[in-house]
Structures are given as structure tokens and as C-alpha cells.
Simulated assay, not measured.
Amino acid sequence: MADIVNKQISRRSFLGIFGASAVTLGLGLVGCGATGEKGGAATAGSSAAAASIDKITMVWLPNESSSEFDAGREEFGKVLEKYAGVKVELMTTTDYNVAIEAIASGKAQLANMGAEGFIQAQKKNSKVLPLVTTSDVDGKLDGAKYYSRICVPEAEMGTYADSAEETGYSIKKIKGKRMSFVSATSTSGFKVPCNAIMKAFPDDVKSSDELSTPGFFSQVLFGNSHPGSAVNLLQGDADVAAFDDVDVDTYLDVPEGDRDAVNAAGSVYSVKADAPQPFDRVQGKKFGIIQSTPVLNGPIAVNTEKVPQEIIDKLVKGLTSKETSEDELLFAPEDKEGNGAVWSLGDTAGFIAVEDSWYDPIRALD
């Protein structure tokens, strides 16, 4: 059994900025058992120093480190052990930067990451490469995305209504507000919303760094997780907040409609009456979306300097297998959501191998 190490050492994937075609730019789609001609982590060419390994440590970002995912994390550890053939230790975190440093330094050899966090880790160590990501519901990369949202309390949505905008809402009145982000290394909780803000305020903001401290905003908070950022908004500590759908919607009564529709500007969500921590203190509170951007799904990343190529190949083949995609403790069917699984079949059909170049659109963000 994989060892769950709750050290609590003090953390998800972008389209709209470049248009819908961005998700298909530079993609060399790889299936199970990628070949040497297809690049990606499956053919990265591990260091000779990683010729042998007797244990793999897998680090998780704060969102997936919470106790509600204990069953899913432990199951994932078992699956990794089965295919890698070595013991697997699971490391949870409360800080994005700790996870980034762990995979870059080799303290962890695998990591569940957002796209931006992965890129930051790769900047520290070029041997960090994507192993797999979660596919769309058709088992492809075409729609392998989730949503970055900029939200406000439902009662304040009228302030941001703008008939001149195609969406009916504008973020042009957020200057001077109290803002909550997730983490400065979060893709959908910082990087993507910052780029949307810079696009809306080209004369006021030149870099995302300017948005991480007071100036453009009267106050800047970091929730350290997507639920944390949402709670900052709902309990009144922030006027505006950025967070994604996949890490938050399990706590919410989601509007009816397909995923694109319910993530559109103007949609209103309410916190479930029985929502657990950290939403237990904001049960029944409502927020609305004023800006929404599709984001590329983040990878399970591997430090190829530390993991032998033979094991990398086995992991890609095993993780992208039908057996893995049918494991309900990894990918919960819609009627079993809340069973502890980290991923939902309402969002994905399972894992798919992915090349490093697939994340080039994220690298192009400021």
C-alpha cells in the first residue's frame, strides 16, 4: 500500500487569451505506450544516475491534499506501485511553491501539477517533463480543459454588467477592489486571470507581478488553494476572487447546463447547505462569474533525472490503460462524486500521454 505522508509542508489548465485554436497548437497527441518519435516524458531519456530506484515520492498540490481526497490519493498510490513496481510515498502540501521545489529538486519524483506550476518547476530543472494529463470526456486532448473564473458576490453582479460586452459583463470596474487569488504560481488562480486583467487594463498593468501586491488593487489576498480563494470572497474578505471550477464545484449547487454554459459570465452558484470545510462557514452564500477563461489541464509531471526510463514507460502505459480509467476511486462516475476520487468522469475519460510542447500556450503568458 502506498504510504500517505501528511507532512503538511507549508499550490490547476487556458485558451481564451489566444482563442479556441490554442489548445491544438503544437500538439503531438500521444496514446498509450508513446514511441520514441513522439517526444514527451515517455521518451525523455532518463539520466544514467536514475538507473535504479527503490521508491517514488508523489507530491500533491494543496487542493488535492485535503482529507476529502484521502481515498483517491491512496488509490492512485496503489496504481503507481502496481505499474512502477516500486514503493510509492504520497506527500501532501499546503503551499504550491513547496510542491514545485519538491519535483524540481528531486525530493519528489512525480507531482500532480497545474500547468503554470509545472512550467515553473521546469524552469528550475529542465528534466521535469509531463507524463500524462487528464483527457476530455471523449478521451482526447481537444477539450482537455477546465475554467479559470473571476467572481464577485451575487449581490454585486449588477455593478459589473456591461451591455457593450459580448458576455454581458466586464471586469473593467475591478480596479481598486480587494482581490483574492489562489497562489502566485497557480495557473487558473493567478496567471490566467492576471492576463485577462492586463488585457482589460493595458495602460495600467504591464506585468502580473504588479497584481500580486496592493497598487492596482487596494488589497491582495492569497487563499493558498482554490477553495481558500472562494471562501475569501464569500465571507467578505475580498470583493473579487479568482479560482477554478474543478477544485470548487464539488462544494456548490451548480447551475444546470453543459460545462461551457455554466462557466460563462453571468452564471450564479450557491454553496451547498451541507458543504464541508472550508465552505461550512459560508453555506448558502452565492457568487456570480464575471470573467471565464478555458485552461489547459495540468500534468502529472515526472523528474526524468530521478526516474528510470523503463519505469516512465511502464507508468505511461499503465496510467493510460482502460483498467485505470475504469477505477472509480480515481475517476468518479457522476453518480458517485464525493467518494474521495480526485478526478470526475464528468470532466474526463481518464489519463492521456502528453508532450511538453502542448504547454507552449501557457509559456506564452506573461
Rank of each mutant, 00 (worst) to 15 (best):
M198G: 05
S183I: 01
F190P: 06
S180K: 00
K314V: 01
E156G: 04
A99Q: 15
S47D: 14
M157F: 06
I174G: 15
D247T: 15
T134Q: 12
L365H: 03
S267I: 06
D335C: 03
T167F: 04
V316Y: 08
S344R: 13
F190T: 01
K175L: 06
Q309P: 15
I312E: 11
L141F: 13
G338H: 04
K140M: 08
T24Y: 04
I4K: 03
N112S: 12
G28P: 11
G288S: 09
P299V: 01
S188Q: 09
G45M: 10
A84K: 02
V248P: 00
V23R: 15
V295R: 00
A349C: 01
I362S: 07
G257E: 03
F14S: 08
L315G: 11
F14T: 05
T324R: 09
L29N: 14
G158E: 07
V220Y: 14
M113Y: 12
D253E: 10
E210R: 15
A102H: 14
E68V: 02
T134I: 06
D237L: 07
S325P: 03
F69P: 00
V240E: 09
I312R: 15
M113K: 14
P62K: 07
K285D: 01
L234M: 04
F287Y: 04
A238G: 01
S52I: 10
A111L: 12
K55P: 07
A50R: 14
K336Y: 06
G236Q: 00
